[in-house]
Design a protein around this nucleic acid. Structure first.
Length: 301
DNA sequence: CTGTAATCCTGCGAGC
DNA sequence: TGCTCGCAGGATTACA
């Protein structure tokens, strides 16, 4: 569920609440998330202090200072590291800080006990998300940069044109590819393509430079607007403070199958592309670039 | 390389 | 009221 705007909202909500707090302990539920629980969690994270929160693509990064209670004598500790907790919300993940006295709902799979009678809870009914511990911040950043494309804001226009132009995959698949641009998911891919007037099925290589630039600019604009609305809540999503998002009220196409396009009235169409439901307006997003004049007539080979 | 489908899960709404 | 079915914001893998 959570795409870039939702993850960004969670990070902005939690940053002032978590910064400077110490983690007393980490408790997993009995059920596994996407990756198995790491035994290193507790000795490494307990006692560490939260230095800050960041987002990269759809990942939430909690930067820690100190390694907490290392086993053995103090003198045998390794040099102070900069550990990181890395969290992905998957489809239904929620990350909130609440007083310890708050009743524990179902599907809370990781609890970080904090030093002020509150706790950070990772709740994820479908368990497609994951929470991992890494001992070294630089290594995490390097790994993320290797597996993710650039953040959608301030992308290099040349590089984006090259990435889109070199593939025959359809635009929907291109936008969902985290290596092309990080953070876009099913909702915003559809919304961006509508606002850019591009058919989701068009091959990346069919775009002109101008269309590519328009796509890149629309992408940043839509995501920024969505962040300003605190993301979209279809069902499960809540921000770090438990608040729902508001951008679902501005959807032009997502989830609006058969409803009239807000611009031209044509019924919105839903197709299956890249394994995901894809919504678009067949009038506002023509399948072929509109070309005027008889030059488009077939000329001999 | 590209597209498709299945997989990991739970929950909810539609339709009967 | 209750049942089954299909689908859901993600990501990875296998296979044609």
């Amino acid at each position: 569920m959570p795409e870039l705007p939702e993850v960004e909202t969670v990070v902005r909500d939690l940053r002032p609440v978590l910064r400077g707090r110490s983690i007393l302990a980490v408790r997993p539920s009995r059920q596994q998330l996407r990756r198995p629980w790491q035994a290193a969690w507790n000795p490494a994270v307990s006692g560490a202090q939260v230095e800050g929160l960041r987002r990269r693509g759809k990942w939430i990064l909690i930067d820690l200072r100190g390694h907490g209670r290392a086993p053995g004598r103090t003198s045998q500790r390794p040099a102070l590291g900069l550990p990181v907790v890395r969290i992905h919300l998957g489809m239904t993940g929620q990350l909130t800080v609440v007083p310890t006295t708050e009743p524990l709902p179902d599907h809370v799979h990781v609890v970080f006990e904090l030093d002020n009678d509150t706790e950070l809870r990772f709740r994820d009914p479908r368990r497609f998300g994951c929470a991992e511990y890494f001992p070294d911040r630089a290594a995490v950043d390097a790994a993320l940069d290797a597996e993710l494309g650039p953040e959608p804001f301030a992308m290099d226009p040349e590089a984006f044109r090259a990435a889109v132009g070199r593939t025959t995959r359809c635009l929907k698949a291109v936008l969902l590819d985290q290596q092309v641009v990080a953070g876009v998911g099913n909702i915003y891919a559809d919304e961006v393509l509508f606002r850019a007037g591009l058919h989701p099925q068009r091959p990346g290589s069919s775009l002109s430079a101008a269309e590519c630039d328009r796509l890149r600019e629309t992408l940043a604009a839509v995501l920024e607007r969505a962040i300003a609305s605190r993301g979209s809540t279809i069902r499960d999503y809540v921000g770090g403070s438990g608040l729902r998002g508001g951008f679902q009220n501005e959807f032009a196409v997502y989830g609006r199958t058969d409803q009239p396009c807000r611009v031209c009235g044509t019924p919105i169409v839903c197709l299956r592309l890249a394994g995901r439901s894809s919504h678009y307006c067949p009038t506002c997003q023509p399948a072929r670039t509109r070309v005027s004049g008889p030059a488009t007539r077939r000329r001999g080979r």
